[in-house]
Design a protein around this nucleic acid. Structure first.
Length: 469
DNA sequence: CTATGGCACGGATT
DNA sequence: AATCCGTGCCATAG
């Protein structure tokens, strides 16, 4: 774990330390802004347009992802491969997505979601469809579902409903997958469609959503099984699959989030800071972890500038010298940032591999302080690095990096499973006993809290509810 | 009387 | 030092 002599890289001055800290806590988008301003204000700083693979040190041919993914040597590595990935093209749009999240708390979520989606799909639309799309997107509810009927929209625009549906279909395939659907059912169907390209989707899941959505959303699994003519066990598997891979409310990061509808979701719409994938999308291959960098190339102190300084007049010399020092400090800080981030991610990913591959139940209770001890850095360093960052998992879901440190997420998700699988409604104290059998000791009160966090109804309301409006 | 939600306290985490 | 989280106690609903 300690291969790298870290001390050699330790910041020497307090200024270095402070700047590294701030850089560490930045999102990719924010980092890009930072670098951009630094580049334009400081003549001593220079961007060398070189694209070199950070792991195999080979020059990269063109834009795109690093070909190390197909490096024959890397297929032998068992540890997850972590590397820094230049993805300039991600962030060339308006810098708006990079705004610091805490500043504007009002009117953000819908605006941002709509704008975010529109930016993705705008290129493939002609101008009038673009207007249509914008109109649709302004009519999303807080769950990311379309709040008005398609027919209404068609009337409003005096066009055929089919055309509206066409645009809707494009919207649905944009990033919060299923966004702009007319119902949770539709959202799930779209998600399964797209997911089907990269992962196995149980055929029964599709049938259940298509035909038995009512029963499914009321969690009446016994009923559902009978209606579909399959065993309860099969239904349970489908439910598990849906819970792990799909999300009926596209705007929520996952369906437990009804508690805090806005705040934790702010950063969900951003591009991820870290992307985790299987090599070639094949689950048998090792994990590839990309730490997204906002530019392609290396920053350095311009050698031209360095030599020019000799011939400068005395008063200029002073100013330029300052520039140069700032530049080299900045470069060091960036390197420092990337280095810590890389080590952090490396450690976390190998600890939480099960979580990444198999889902929330397998999340291990890892704390930031544990990592900090492992990496021999201060706790606050880890905190800063984790804060405000997002990760894209192999199943294409984007979650906050902080989720990797959530102590209770796994228990919550096991709880979800238990409730989904047992047919007769279990009271909280019974749930406590069952959890205890699985080696999880929590208080009765805590189970109640988790339940409400997951949006699960109390026992007496759970199954006895027959179809009501 | 049982099941659950609210409030608040203490310890851990950041 | 500030915040989050699990938990205990108590009130309330069924």
């Amino acid at each position: 774990m300690f291969q790298i002599p870290y001390h050699t890289l330790r910041p020497a001055t307090t200024a270095h330390l402070a700047q590294t800290m701030t850089l560490l806590s930045l999102t990719v988008g924010q980092l890009k802004q930072q670098i951009d301003t630094e580049l334009s204000t400081n003549p001593a700083l220079e961007l060398v347009e070189e694209r070199r693979c950070p792991t195999c040190r080979r020059l990269l041919p063109e834009r795109g992802v690093c070909p190390v993914c197909s490096c024959p040597s890397s297929t032998l590595i068992d540890e997850p491969v972590v590397f820094l990935s230049p993805r300039e093209d991600f962030y060339t749009g308006s810098g708006s997505s990079a705004e610091r999240p805490d500043e504007d708390d009002f009117s953000v979520e819908e605006d941002n979601l709509a704008a975010y989606v529109l930016r993705q799909i705008a290129p493939e639309l002609d101008p009038q469809d673009r207007r249509l799309a914008a109109y649709l997107l302004t009519n999303l509810d807080e769950d990311g579902l379309l709040a008005i009927p398609v027919v209404e929209v068609a009337k409003y625009f005096h066009i055929a409903p089919a055309q509206v549906k066409n645009v809707q279909r494009i919207i649905q395939r944009a990033d919060p997958l299923g966004v702009g659907s007319s119902s949770t059912r539709e959202a799930l169907l779209v998600q399964m469609d797209v997911l089907g390209d990269i992962q196995f989707v149980p055929p029964l899941a599709r049938r259940v959503v298509e035909e038995g959505m009512d029963l499914l959303s009321h969690r009446q699994f016994a009923e559902l099984a009978r209606y579909m003519g399959v065993s309860v066990r099969q239904v349970q598997q489908v439910v598990k699959f849906i819970g792990e891979n799909l999300n009926p409310f596209p705007a929520r990061s996952h369906w437990g989030d009804i508690r805090h509808p806005v705040a934790p979701n702010l950063h969900v719409y951003q591009q991820p800071d870290i992307i985790i994938n299987f090599m070639n999308d094949n689950p048998k291959n090792p994990l590839i972890v990309e730490i997204v960098l906002p530019l392609s190339g290396t920053l350095r102190v311009s050698p031209l500038f360095r030599s020019a300084i000799q011939q400068a007049s005395d008063e200029k010399k002073e100013a330029w010298k300052g520039d140069m020092e700032r530049a080299s400090l900045f470069v060091k800080c960036i390197q420092q940032r990337n280095h810590t981030l890389r080590r952090l991610v490396q450690r976390v990913v190998s600890l939480q591999r099960d979580f990444i591959v198999h889902g929330e139940q397998y999340l291990k209770p890892v704390t930031r302080s544990l990592i900090s001890r492992d990496l021999d850095v201060h706790e606050s360093t880890i905190s800063r690095a984790v804060a405000n960052k997002t990760v894209q998992l192999p199943n294409r879901r984007i979650i906050p990096l902080a989720n990797f440190f959530d102590r209770s997420l796994n228990v919550r998700s096991i709880l979800r499973d238990i409730i989904a699988e047992e047919s007769s409604p279990l009271s909280d104290s019974q749930l406590v006993d069952i959890l205890a059998q699985r080696g999880i000791n929590v208080a009765r009160r805590t189970v109640a809290k988790y339940r409400s966090m997951e949006g699960i109804l109390p026992a007496h309301l759970r199954q006895s509810v027959v179809q009501q409006t």
